[in-house]
Deep mutational scan, measured.
Amino acid sequence: MISNAKIARINELAAKAKAGVITEEEKAEQQKLRQEYLK
């Protein structure tokens, strides 16, 4: 099960992506976390 901290990070990265200020490194982290969440 995914931790609350990881869910919070997913939401934080989603907000950054929506604002258009996300880095390529953060995009990769976001994809990794989303895949983990979906498992």
Rank of each mutant, 00 (worst) to 15 (best):
A19E: 11
A28S: 08
E12R: 03
K39P: 14
M1A: 12
I7G: 05
E36M: 04
I10K: 03
N4T: 13
R34V: 15
E29Q: 03
V21F: 07
K39G: 15
K6C: 09
K32F: 10
A5H: 09
Q31I: 13
E36V: 01
L33H: 03
K39W: 06
I7A: 07
G20K: 05
E24D: 10
K39H: 13
L38A: 12
L33I: 06
A19W: 05
Q31V: 12
Q35R: 08
Q31A: 14
R34N: 15
A17V: 06
K39R: 08
Y37R: 07
E25K: 07
E25G: 06
I22M: 08
N4H: 14
V21K: 13
Q35K: 12
E36G: 03
K32L: 13
K18F: 05
A19H: 07
Q30R: 09
E24L: 08
K16F: 02
G20T: 03
L33V: 03
E29T: 01
L33S: 03
R9P: 00
K27P: 01
G20P: 00
L38E: 15
A8Y: 02
A28C: 08
E24T: 08
E29F: 02
A5P: 10
R9E: 02
I7T: 06
Q35N: 11
A28N: 12
I7K: 07
I7H: 07
L13P: 03
A14N: 12
E36I: 03
E26G: 00
E29M: 03
K16M: 06
K27S: 08
A15N: 09
Y37W: 14
L38P: 13
Q35H: 11
E36Q: 05
A14I: 11
A8T: 10
V21Y: 06
A8R: 11
R34W: 15
I2Y: 02
S3L: 05
A28V: 12
I10R: 04
A14R: 11
I22Q: 04
Q31L: 07
G20S: 03
A19C: 08
A15V: 09
A14Y: 05
R9T: 02
R34L: 15
N11W: 09
K6N: 08
K16V: 04
L38R: 05
A8K: 12
E26Q: 05
K32R: 14
E24H: 06
R9N: 01
M1Q: 13
N11Q: 14
E26S: 00
K32Y: 09
N4P: 15
M1K: 14
N4V: 13
N4D: 14
M1E: 13
A8L: 06
A28T: 11
K16D: 02
K27D: 07
Q35T: 10
A19Y: 06
Y37H: 10
K39T: 15
E12L: 06
E29W: 01
T23H: 01
A8Q: 12
A15Y: 04
E12W: 01
S3C: 11
K18D: 11
K18W: 04
K6S: 10
A8P: 03
A14P: 00
K18Y: 04
T23N: 05
I22R: 01
T23E: 02
S3G: 11
Q31Y: 05
E12F: 03
I22V: 04
A17D: 07
E24P: 11
K39C: 13
I22K: 01
